[in-house]
Design a protein around this nucleic acid. Structure first.
Length: 461
RNA sequence: UCCUCGGUAGCUCAGUAGGUAGAGCAGGUGGCUGUUAACCACCUUGUCGGCGGUUCGAGCCCGUCCCGGGGAGCCA
């Protein structure tokens, strides 16, 4: 044992070849003693389920070791897979050998055989993936990541690794973490020409601008990588470091953009429900009751569509009292978005054509001259999960908007070149991966959807 | 960052009028049983978030800081 040749419990439970000799390796969840033997629940992380191991009193290390096993101990077990005579499991392993690999002092091991609050588990982010719920999130997250790539690769999209260190601020996308190699900057001096890159640099807030470069060379591309936002934000939907999926399509308008976005969301939901049924069932039963019905509803219905202007009219006519007044030209508040998606449409809602004044310079100006071809997809419970737009491909319109926004065109010369040489209509969007996992898992706080959450004042390991 | 609620045993919480701290679970010991949130008996555990103040006396009142929940802003 030790060459990683043991059977994964997931495969063991799928095949259930009774009578065969098997090896498993994992961590003890609980031990129960009976007459002359013990029951060990072993989990190896391959799936939600544990395998029940029968450790008979005749085993050489029974009294010395097996009777002292507790939650968290690591073991390797070799034995025969047999039908279980009792309820609760179809098969179990009759152990021929139980090797204790690592002990976990029960007086100090923080994970108990009971439900823990997510707030507590967050304080032990190095141990929390050993719990049912966080283990399930990890598997679902991995599967969804895989499915994101499958979706785009099957459709001929090319993945582009856009830079994590950037010198261009994707205006309107939030605060940027400043990056420096100079100690002087710590004393309040602004990083500048003498710093590592010869100019101000930071961690990316979006790969969009660079993705546009590759879209206008390769056609359809996507990015899927870490993104950083430095605003002092403390909500259940915000992280300082998160992963974002950003497709960018050449020769594509807002309608094509919306279609891809809706197809992507539905594809991902279907994939995870199909491939992670046990984990999804756990979420449905213990994290958010009715989750699966909600997700199936999303898959089966067309997303609702409404323009910003129609949304404002709708909100003005609503009987509901809002804390913030609705007015054309002002961005929709959370309460407005929630009302529309949770009470009016009861399904994902795509809001389009926002006023140009409240959206970034790169969004394409509509023929009315006062709105832009933007789209936000709102989902019940989360709010905005996708934000995107058709990009402004006309050089003169783009430079005019940059001037209005007070942006120095010289800093974006490379971006303007894309419009100067062989410009084409193109569009794209950003999908927050953790918000998606929040929606799919029913987790109330986004900090449970990423292995090591980073929030203001919190980055322990 | 703002509003609001909270921080008491390893975990989840109770603590009545300011009078010197409790339950369940976990853990330990023993028993019993093809057990599975195992069961039964007994036992252990506290800088009452930090600092400062009021008071004869503070878990409780006041100030301040830190952390967490909910909401807002910001955002994906």
């Amino acid at each position: 044992m030790g060459e990683n040749v043991q059977t994964r419990i997931k495969n063991l439970l799928a095949k259930k070849t009774v009578g065969s000799l098997v090896q498993v390796a994992g961590w003890i969840r609980t031990r129960r003693d009976t007459g002359g033997f013990s029951f060990l629940e072993v989990n190896d992380g391959s799936c939600l389920a544990n395998i029940q191991v029968i450790a008979d009193g005749s085993l050489a290390n029974y009294e010395a070791e097996i009777r002292k096993l507790s939650a968290g101990c690591s073991v390797m077990v070799e034995g025969t897979l047999q039908a279980s005579p009792a309820k609760g499991q179809d098969v179990e392993i009759l152990a021929a050998e139980v090797v204790v690999v690592g002990w976990a002092d029960p007086e100090h091991y923080p994970l108990q055989k009971k439900r823990h609050s997510f707030e507590f588990l967050r304080e032990i982010s190095h141990l929390r993936p050993r719990t049912n719920a966080l283990g399930a999130v990890a598997r679902v997250r991995s599967r969804m990541s895989y499915a994101v790539h499958t979706f785009f690769q099957e459709r001929g999209f090319c993945q582009v690794h856009t830079p994590i260190i950037t010198t261009s601020d994707c205006e309107g996308a939030g605060e940027m973490f400043q990056l420096t190699a100079m100690e002087t900057s710590l004393k309040g001096e602004e990083a500048g020409p003498q710093d590592f890159f010869g100019r101000k640099a930071g961690l990316t807030v979006s790969g969009q601008l660079q993705a546009e470069v590759y879209a206008l060379a390769l056609g359809n591309v996507y990015t899927f990588g870490p993104t950083f936002r430095a605003e002092n934000s403390n909500t259940s939907r915000h992280l300082a470091e998160f992963w974002m999926i950003e497709p960018e399509m050449a020769f594509c308008d807002l309608r094509g953009n919306m279609r891809i976005a809706e197809d992507l969301l539905k594809y991902l939901l279907n994939d995870v429900i199909t491939h992670c049924p046990d984990d999804m069932d756990l979420f449905d039963r213990f994290i958010e009751k009715g989750l699966l019905a909600k997700l199936r509803g999303v898959m089966e219905q067309d997303f609702a569509h409404i323009t910003y202007t129609e949304a404002v009219d709708r909100l003005l006519q609503a009987q509901k009292k809002f804390e913030f007044q609705v007015r054309w030209g002002v961005d929709l508040q959370s309460e407005h978005e929630r009302y529309l998606t949770e009470e009016v449409f009861l399904r994902p809602l795509i809001v389009t054509d926002y006023p140009a004044t409240i959206k970034p310079f790169y969004m394409r100006v509509n023929d009315d001259g006062r709105t832009v071809a933007a789209m936000d997809i709102l989902v019940p419970g989360i709010g905005e999960i996708i934000g995107g737009s058709q990009r402004e491909e006309r050089l003169d319109v783009l430079t005019a908007r940059m001037a209005t926004a007070g942006i120095n065109t010289a800093d974006y010369a490379w971006y303007l070149d894309l419009r100067r040489y062989g410009t084409v209509p193109h569009a794209g969007f950003g999908l927050g991966f953790e918000r998606l996992i929040q929606f799919v898992s029913g987790m109330a706080n986004i900090r449970e959807t990423i292995p090591f959450p980073r929030t203001p004042g919190f980055a322990p390991c």
